[in-house]
Simulated assay, not measured.
Amino acid sequence: MQDTEDKIKVGISIGDLNGIGSEVALKTFEDSRMLDFCTPIFFASNKTISFLSNHFKIPIKFHGIPDASDAIHGKVNVVNVWKETPEITFGQPTEKAGSFAIRSLQAAVKALKEGSIDVLVTAPINKKTIQSKDFKFPGHTDYLARELGGKSLMFMVTDTLKIGLLTDHVPVKEAPSLITRGLILEKVRAMENSLIRDFGISRPKIAVLGINPHSGDDGVIGSEDDDVLRPALKELSEGKHLVFGPYAADTFFASDAYLKFDGVLAAYHDQGLIPFKTLSFGKGVNFTAGLDRIRTSPDHGTAFDIAGMNKANPESFKEAVFTGIHIFRERFQYDELTRNPLKKSRLRRRGKGEDR
């Protein structure tokens, strides 16, 4: 890992070449001022990036390198992961595009593990076309959880709203049975640790949403909230964690209750992502918290319906880059200061609303 006084190396996995990922990634670095904040490293090939930049009329100059460790500051770098020329058919989900997306991701994760890059920003993939005998994961989060140390938490973040998930890419019918005391303790602690270490919030307040409608209505609409969720939250509260709930999900966001908390933990994917994307779409970032390396991504998918049309908005991807840089700096500072007892007393902690 490099010192934060140097440019932070941001690795970019290219995602599904038939989607909008490459477009928003290139548009992000079309503005040369971005090079003042970081050193971008695309994992693809010179020919692929050249074709894409010509197609989208993005006059971006890039520097081809054999390895991420050879990246040059002040330039857009491209690690040549493949020599062949991929067939790009915008808007079409194909197994071939999926295979290139995985090759890019695997090379980027390898560089992340080796410390050749500091932050990984992943462009969107198609969850069906990436499946193969060598890659059987429902998405980035699950793959990264295996490859990187720690316990992963899918954490959707903006400046004012941060939502994590107890369960993520699983069928809705399976979610309640997967929510156990152990899982609740693990995810709450992962969120709490991330809010402290990655966002500089000293005593984070966390709200937990109920599993069933109305949090079960005292057992009338399911028993999981009373049997599993409430006892786990009581245990955490008795352990001095600022954890509250369960709250009925249908009114929690409509009443602006979320503004009173630093983080919100939802029971399953859509319970958390529907309000998050409604309130923050285009500005939100998907952060894989709880791991010993930093990965972010935009809050949207491949958007095949507009792929190749030069219509994609790069704001969420750009925000993913800035968020990754911010987390890297926060984590670097926190680890440095808490590692040294003489510096620890000078560690300044910020409250809610001052985490960026």
Results as ranks from 00 to 15, higher is better:
D6V: 09
G11L: 06
I14W: 01
D16R: 03
A25D: 14
L26T: 13
K27Y: 02
E30V: 07
R33C: 07
L35Y: 00
I41D: 07
F43H: 03
N46T: 15
T48M: 13
T48Q: 11
I49L: 10
F51R: 09
L52I: 13
A68F: 00
A68G: 05
S69K: 13
I72W: 02
K75R: 14
V78A: 08
K83F: 06
T85E: 13
E87F: 02
E87A: 15
G91Y: 00
G91I: 05
K96L: 15
A97D: 13
S99E: 14
I102V: 10
R103H: 05
S104C: 11
K113A: 12
S116F: 04
D118S: 03
L120N: 03
I125D: 11
L144S: 03
L148R: 03
G149F: 04
G150W: 02
M154S: 02
F155I: 10
T160E: 10
I163W: 00
I163D: 06
I163P: 10
L165N: 04
L166I: 14
L166M: 13
V170F: 00
P171V: 09
P171C: 12
V172S: 13
K173I: 15
E174I: 10
L178I: 07
G182S: 06
V188Q: 04
R189K: 15
R189V: 15
A190I: 06
D198Y: 00
G200Y: 00
S202Y: 05
K205P: 14
L209K: 03
G210T: 08
S215D: 10
G219M: 05
E224F: 00
D226A: 11
D227T: 13
L229K: 02
A232T: 05
K234I: 14
L236F: 00
G239H: 02
K240L: 15
F244I: 12
A249T: 09
Y258I: 12
L259T: 12
F261C: 10
L265V: 07
L273N: 04
L273A: 04
I274H: 01
I274E: 08
T278H: 03
G282M: 10
I294Y: 00
R295Y: 01
A307C: 06
A312E: 06
N313F: 02
E315N: 14
K318G: 13
E319S: 15
E319W: 01
A320S: 11
V321W: 00
G324E: 07
I325T: 04
R329V: 12
R331C: 07
Y334P: 12
N340Y: 01
K343Q: 11
K343H: 09
K352P: 12
K352H: 12
K352Q: 08
D355L: 15
